[in-house]
Amino acid sequence: MDVTLTVNGEEKSVSVPPETTLLRLLRDDLNLTGAKIGCDVGDCGACTVIMDGIAVNSCLVLAGQAGGRSVETIEGLADLDAYHPLQKNFEDLGSLQCGFCGPGMILTAKQLLDDNPNPSKEEIQDALAGNLCRCTGYTKIVEAVADAAAEMRGDKQAA
């Protein structure tokens, strides 16, 4: 089936079988491998992308469902010259170790900050409950999200 969707601001058309997930479409057809194949059943959050403004597990979205919609992946968040404040604060604090959960973690956090620019620690933890990290223990991830939020509000100078 033919699917046309907007990915990181650009319209893309692909031809895929109906049983293709958005995750596979992004990785295999558009070569955007930032979204990871983790559990592939909606538990781990490594495949999180933002679709029409909300964080979703792209392993649980069929290509046909993504047709006509706007998808943002980690590749669209920033380029090497200008990191998003979330990316920068994750880097500054050493919030990631293996990094596999990073793209999903950062995109879920981005949706949180888009909706709520000043989240409490508990709200950050609640928002990230669907993004599993098996390296870090989450402390530095939660701190980085709080720091990025402060920076985006103008309450904290960029390091």
Binding site: G42, A55, V56, N57, L60, T108, A127, A129, G130
Partner: peptide, 9 residues
Amino acid sequence: IGAVQTRNL
């Protein structure tokens, strides 16, 4: 229910 990604879909 689930986590935010699950609740969004």
